[in-house]
Structure formats: structure tokens, C-alpha cells
Amino acid sequence: MSDLTIVRGKQTAAQKILAFFGKGFVNFLLVFVAIFWLVPSVGLFISSLRTVGDSASTGWWTVFTTPAQLTVDNYVNLLSNTAITGSFWNTIMIAVPTTVLVVVIGALAGYAFAWLQFPGRDWLLIVVIVLLAVPIQVALIPLARMFGALGIFGSVLSVILFHIAFGLPFAIFLLRNFFMQVPAELLEAARIDGASDWRIFVQVILPLGGPAIASLAIFQFLWTWNDMLVALIFTNSGSQPLTVAIQSQLRQFGSNIDVLSSGAFLSMIVPLIVFFAFQRYFVQALLAGSQK
């Protein structure tokens, strides 16, 4: 008995030594990786605080030796640039309604798939799962034509409709999975009390599904906010969001690094705030598909 204890004691001591060196190395390595991962964003942020002249002649890292070159001029100019402020507003006008509608429509359908019985339910669910992976490219040409015929091509509305349609499969699937975890007894109790499906949906499912809905909303918001391809095709200069407005500056990279860097950072601010404030929900949305 005592032998065993001694052997065990030795093992732990050896492991401790190993663990100490191992941990030091791992810490060192991960600090290095973290710095490496931060350099791109930090570089962009510093670039956005330098004048065009400085950016054309020296790299952003020179601020560490000459901090005097930092200025907020680019942001002042950006905020008086109506093309950029207009597109910022357009981005909000696209992302907010899209998010609200995807959540509402997705929640309704998610409830039906989770708790209602109707013929063909499983087949319909399989269709939704298939649509999860459909590339948006298959809809670009027909929808450009359809929206043209409806007279809404080039408007904010056309982008919203497109994003809703392609956001729904994920929304339905995600919310169905979450709603199914609501205890069946709660629904039974409500039903015995004579509640209709609508009342159950509003008074039981929605309140209990709050975290799931938050996850979906944040995910959908970031997705729509960051989209470029759909907006590139379906908007014009009056309705374009930030991503499209900024990419149009790319043609002369270098000469307009001031607009590009500050514009790109402006487009990142809202997603970053949302991300840091609600990252728990965002991660949950990612995990929802794979793990409970």
C-alpha cells in the first residue's frame, strides 16, 4: 500500500516538472499566435489614424517610434462624406428588417416543425435541410430578373427579400432544434388550460426560446451586415451598403488608403460591438447545429 503511494508521488512530481516546462512553452507559443492574429486588425486601425501622405511613404508600424502622426482626420472626413454615411444608413436599413423578419418567420415555422403534426412534415424538413447548403449563386440571375420585373431591382427591399429567403433554412432548422427542447409537459399544461397554438407560441415557446432567438438574431444580423455579393448585384449607388461603397474605393488602392482603412474600420465597428457584447449567443448559434 505504501509502495503504491510512493510510486504515485514520484509520477506526480515528474509530471509537475514536465507540465511546468510544457506550460511555459504553450503559453509562449499561444502569446505569439495571439499577437500574430491581432496584427492585421491593429494594423488596419492604426492605418485609419494616419494621413494619406504618411500612409503613402511609411508603414503603420512607424507610429510606435513617431506617435505624433496619429490623427482622427480620416474619420472626420469620412463622416462628412455623404456617400459613406448614406451607405452606413443603408446597411442598417438592410440588416435590421432582415434580422427581424428572419427571426419572426423562422420562429413560426420552427414551432410548426417542432410541435405540430401535419402530413409531409418530415419530407418538408428534409427540403429545409437540403436548402441549408444551396449556394446563393443559383438564385442571382433569376431573382435579378424577377426583381427587375417587379420594379424593385436596385432597392434596399430587393436585398432584404433575398437575405430573408436564404436566411430562413438555417433559422428554421436552428429554432426547431431549440424549440424541441422545451419540456413537453409545459405545452400539455397550457393546452389543458385551453390555450390555442398561437397563444402557446407567444406565451410559452417565445419566452423560453429567448436565448435561441438571440443567437439566431445576432448571427443573422452579422451575416447581413457583412454581406457584399448580394448587395453588389441588387443595389445601386443610392441604396448600396457600406461593404459595396468601400469596395468601390479599392480600384485605386494606395491613393485612397485613408477612405479605405477608416471606412473598413467603420464597417467593422458595429459587428465588433455586437460580437463582444453578445459573443456567447453568437458562439451558441454556431454550436447549435452540431451540439446541443
Binding site: 492605418s47 457584399m228 479599392l250 488608403i257 473598413a264 460580437f275
Partner: peptide, 18 residues
């Protein structure tokens, strides 16, 4: 490490091009 997931690919593109 996860932060770049939140920003647009456009912003990431501007960053890497620079």
C-alpha cells in the same frame, strides 16, 4: 482568434491587401 469571424470578408480583404 475568433474575432475575425465577426468582421466582413471585405474588411479582411482590405486588411490583407494592405
Amino acid at each position: 482568434i475568433f474575432m475575425p469571424m465577426a468582421i466582413s470578408m471585405l474588411a479582411a480583404g482590405v486588411i490583407f491587401r494592405g
